[in-house]
Amino acid sequence: MYYIIGRRMNMGKRQEAALETKKKIIEAVKQLLEQKSPEEISIEEITKKACIAKGSFYTHFKRKEDVILEIDFQEYAFLKDDVSRIQGVEQQLSYYLIQSVKIIEKNSLSVARQWMKGAVAPLQEEKAGTRKYRFDYDNILSILNNGIDQKELKQTTPVEILTEMMMNQYYGAVASWCILGQERSLVSMMEHYCQYELKILLQDYQ
């Protein structure tokens, strides 16, 4: 019995140590991003800043882009809270879509390209891109369902279809930006969509 308890305590300590290492990596990347662009940051710099072995980095992340996306998810969580304080389903959707791509654009093309690869991978593979896709899908769907609950949208509104249409537009814009790079602003593309096409998309259900 004491042996089992001891093993559990050791496992708990190992889990705490692993969590602490992951936090160190994330914090190191946050600090480096204040000084450099994502492309300029190397794994060696991250591990040196975090005071960990290089192998410890790969225990938690496959690449630096995955760390940056993890940091982004912290911002996405705040974004979700912000949306709940906005009145109006169209305004909520516009805010979510525009602010979300601002987070993407502020990082780099390499980060966006990395999670776009994951987004088109089989959904059974838990990659950064598929996690982001599910997060966006669930949030857009939630906003639309809330619009029905608040009687801003008709009960017959095809929320799943509308969500898919918005997701196609959203990820299509990100894909275009990944290809064209600095030739087009991702935020401008999404602002144009929200100002014109989103309004038309919703008007038959309001």
Score class of each variant (00 low, 15 high):
Met9Cys: 14
Asn10Val: 14
Gly12Tyr: 10
Lys13Arg: 15
Glu20Gly: 03
Thr21Tyr: 02
Lys22Asn: 04
Lys23Asp: 07
Ile25Asn: 01
Ile26Asp: 02
Ile26Lys: 01
Glu27Ser: 14
Ala28Thr: 08
Val29His: 06
Lys30Tyr: 15
Lys30Leu: 15
Leu32Met: 12
Glu34Ser: 15
Lys36Leu: 14
Ser37Pro: 02
Pro38Phe: 10
Pro38Met: 11
Glu40Leu: 07
Ile41Tyr: 02
Ile43Gln: 07
Ile43Ala: 06
Glu45Lys: 07
Glu45Asp: 05
Thr47His: 13
Ala50Tyr: 04
Ala50Trp: 01
Lys54Met: 11
Gly55Arg: 07
Gly55His: 09
Phe61Ser: 03
Phe61Gln: 05
Lys62Ile: 13
Arg63Leu: 11
Arg63Ile: 13
Lys64Arg: 15
Glu65Met: 12
Asp66Arg: 11
Val67Cys: 06
Leu69Ile: 15
Leu69Val: 11
Asp72Val: 04
Tyr76His: 08
Ala77Ile: 12
Asp81Asn: 09
Val83Asn: 04
Gln87Pro: 00
Gly88Ile: 08
Gly88Asn: 10
Glu90Trp: 01
Glu90Asp: 09
Glu90Gln: 12
Leu93Ala: 04
Ser94Trp: 08
Tyr96Leu: 02
Ile98Asp: 03
Gln99Ser: 13
Val101Leu: 04
Val101Gly: 01
Lys102Gly: 05
Ile104Thr: 08
Ile104Asn: 00
Glu105Arg: 05
Glu105Ser: 13
Lys106Leu: 08
Leu109Glu: 03
Ser110Leu: 07
Val111Pro: 01
Val111Gln: 03
Ala112Glu: 00
Gln114Lys: 10
Met116Phe: 06
Met116Arg: 03
Met116Glu: 02
Ala119Met: 07
Pro122Met: 00
Pro122Lys: 01
Pro122Asp: 02
Leu123Pro: 09
Gln124Ala: 11
Glu125Ile: 13
Glu126Lys: 15
Thr130Ala: 05
Arg131Leu: 11
Lys132Arg: 14
Tyr133Glu: 05
Asp138Gln: 13
Asn139Ala: 08
Asn139Val: 06
Ile140Ser: 01
Ile140Gly: 00
Ile140Tyr: 01
Leu144Ser: 03
Asn146Pro: 12
Gly147Thr: 05
Gly147Arg: 05
Gly147Ile: 06
Gly147Glu: 04
Gly147His: 07
Gln150Asp: 15
Glu152Val: 09
Gln155Phe: 12
Thr156Arg: 14
Thr157Arg: 10
Ile161Gln: 14
Met165Leu: 13
Met165Ser: 09
Cys178Glu: 00
Cys178Ile: 08
Ile179Thr: 10
Ile179His: 11
Leu180Arg: 10
Glu183Thr: 14
Leu186Gly: 02
Val187Trp: 00
Ser188Phe: 03
Ser188Asp: 13
Met189Asn: 01
Tyr193Asn: 05
Tyr193Ser: 02
Cys194Trp: 03
Gln195Met: 15
Tyr196Val: 15
Tyr196His: 14
Gln203Ala: 12
Gln203Tyr: 09
Asp204Val: 09
